[in-house]
Structure formats: C-alpha cells, structure tokens
C-alpha cells in the first residue's frame, strides 16, 4: 500500500545494527572514535558556545564588556597595590603590560578549568534526556573561555601598539605555543574534573581553592627574576616552580608579548637587566606539551569510563 513505509523498511533492513547501550564497556569506542563523534557534532558545539556567551550577558546593558571589566579591574588593583605601593614596578619595566599579559593567559586557563568543571552538572537537564557526546559540554565551556580570551588579547595587543611596545621579534612565536599548552592542560583538567564533579560535588569548591593557590604559584604579578634572585631561597626552588606546566606557559607568553622583559631598561636611573628566562625554555615547553597530550588522552579515557553513569547520577 504505502510505498514510503515499504521503502523505509527496505532501507532499514540493509543497515547494520549499531549498539545503543551495552554493559560491555569495550563496546564503547576509543579515543579516536570520540574525536570523530565530536567532529560530527561541531555545529552543535558552535551553537552551545554561542548559547553560553549570549545567555551570560543577555539582560545586561553593557553586555560582553563585562568580560573585559573584570580583568581590567584586576589589572588596576595589581598595578596600584603591587606595582606602586609594594614597588614591584621599580624592578619590572612596563609593569602594566607585564601584569596584563600574565592575567590574560592565566584567565584563559582558570576559566576553562572552573567553567569546565561545572559544565556537566550545569547541563544536567540535557544529559538526562538526550544522547550527545558528553565531552561537548566541557569543550563548549572552553570555547566561551577562548572568546573572552580573544577579547582580552585584542586589548593587550592594542595596548602594546599604543604604548609603542608591540614585540616585533621571533619571541612572538612563543605566544601560540603558550596558548596551545594552556588549551591542552585546561581541556584535560576540565574533562576530568567535570566528570568527577558529578560523583563528588566538592570538586568544584576544591577547584576554586586550587586555582587561587596556582595563581600565586605562577609568575603573574611578580616577575620570574624575583623567584630566581630571591634571597634565602634554596636553589632548587625555581626548578620546582618550573614543574608547574602553567608557569612555563605563562613565562612563554610573557616572553612573547612583553618586549621590555627581553631588553635592558632604565627605570629612575637604575638599569634593569633582561629577564633571566629559563635557559632551556624551548625544551621545557616541548616536554610540557608532550606530557600534556598524554595527560589529555588519559583524562579523556577516564571521562569515557565515567560518562556511562552520568545520566543517572546527576
């Protein structure tokens, strides 16, 4: 009778069965299968990022300017309190550029990790009712963090141009490397912590505290030279400091964007030598990146193992 029905039925009989759900975890695809599935959903990822950005400032009149006001306020605070009152600006040339560069790259990392950690729990409604590759939620958080980063980055570049400090040098190549490292580690921790947060809600508060600690453990508001030259500090300390992958990324980013750090400058008649950048920074960055990629794969596998129970645990 109805030919559309018969056609549909005939087409379906030629299709192979696919697994909807299974008790056997190995039936769920590996790392590359997940990547392929995510690629197939990239339009949705794009929409989720837009949703996040649009919804955030929807009813505010200043809109996305708010994403700038916070880092600029931080800049002002650190500039006045640490730069002027504590006198750091006397030892760090172009202190404003230095601090803003650090805040910008750090902001990217901390937003990816903290928004990423919340991403699965805050999308509970969707996860309980629709099948989607769940990595899409931490990735959407990453996307919106990247947007905010791009805004800040433009301000930073503009500022360097206006101040005549735009770094025309090969050091500029450190910038994409730093961003890549921050993305690798940010995404790795975001997917891992977002999954753990489903089972243990304390994770999100733990992350807040950890980020605060990490902020002060990275050379953002103080320069690397202060760590190296600090008196009464054992000589191994700078090395421990450099074990933190994000410190390496921050240093690379500063080396790229903060021209004054690689020159001899005069401040109030005192000449300030170039920053003692870690001698083997390039090698360190390469190692940090490779370790990060391995970490990312491990975190994704853990996520994949845990995600089967998301819908019922949230």
């Amino acid at each position: 009778m109805s030919s559309t029905a018969q056609e549909r039925s005939d087409r379906l009989s030629t299709l192979p069965f696919q697994t909807s759900s299974s008790s056997d975890e190995s039936a769920i695809g590996g790392f590359w299968a997940s990547i392929r599935e995510l690629l197939a959903h990239r339009e949705l990822l794009d929409l989720l990022i837009r949703r996040e950005l649009k919804a955030r400032y929807k009813d505010s009149s200043l809109g996305f300017l708010w994403s700038l006001i916070k880092p600029l306020t931080l800049l002002l605070i650190y500039y006045v309190a640490i730069g002027q009152f504590l006198g750091a600006a006397r030892g760090i040339p172009d202190f404003a550029i230095f601090v803003f560069a650090g805040l910008t790259i750090w902001g990217l990392y901390s937003e990816i990790v903290s928004a990423g950690t919340m991403s699965i729990v805050s999308n509970a409604g969707l996860i309980k009712k629709v099948y989607l590759p769940r990595e899409i939620f931490p990735l959407a958080a990453t996307g919106s963090a990247l947007f905010n980063f791009a805004v800040q980055m433009s301000v930073l570049i503009l500022a360097t141009i206006v101040l005549g400090q735009f770094p025309v040098s090969w050091n500029l190549l450190y910038v994409p490397v730093a961003i890549a490292i921050v993305l690798i580690y940010g995404i790795a921790f975001a997917i891992l912590l977002s999954a753990l947060n489903v089972y243990l809600r304390d994770i999100q508060y733990l992350v807040e505290v950890a980020m605060l600690l990490l902020f002060w453990a990275s050379p953002i508001v103080y320069a690397w030279s202060y760590v190296v030259n600090a008196v009464d500090v054992p000589s191994w300390l700078p090395n421990v400091f450099l074990l933190n992958p994000i410190s390496n990324a921050v240093l690379a980013f500063q080396k790229g964007m903060w021209q004054a750090g690689s020159e001899t400058r005069l401040i109030d008649g005192v000449s300030i030598l170039p920053q003692p950048w870690p001698a083997d920074l390039d090698l360190r960055l390469a190692i940090v990146a490779v370790v990060g990629l391995v970490l990312l794969i491990i975190c994704q596998r853990v996520f994949q193992k845990l995600q089967g129970n998301f819908a019922q645990e949230i």
Binding site: L12, S21, S22, S23, K58, K128, V130, Y131
Partner: peptide, 30 residues
C-alpha cells in the same frame, strides 16, 4: 543510549529520536 545497562545489550538501526522531555535543551534566556 542515555544510560548504560549493567547486563545485556541494546542494538538498533536507523535514526532514533527520543522525546523523553520536550524542550530539554531549551535555554530560558534565549
């Protein structure tokens, strides 16, 4: 495929749409 069983397998073929809750993905501010 929204939750995984403890035992057994579910297989299917063809495009599947689950209307478990209408508007699950709606964002109130949009």
């Amino acid at each position: 495929g929204i939750i995984q069983p403890n035992d057994g397998v579910v297989e299917r073929r063809g495009r599947l749409a689950a209307l478990l809750e209408l508007g699950a993905g709606f964002h109130p501010d949009l």
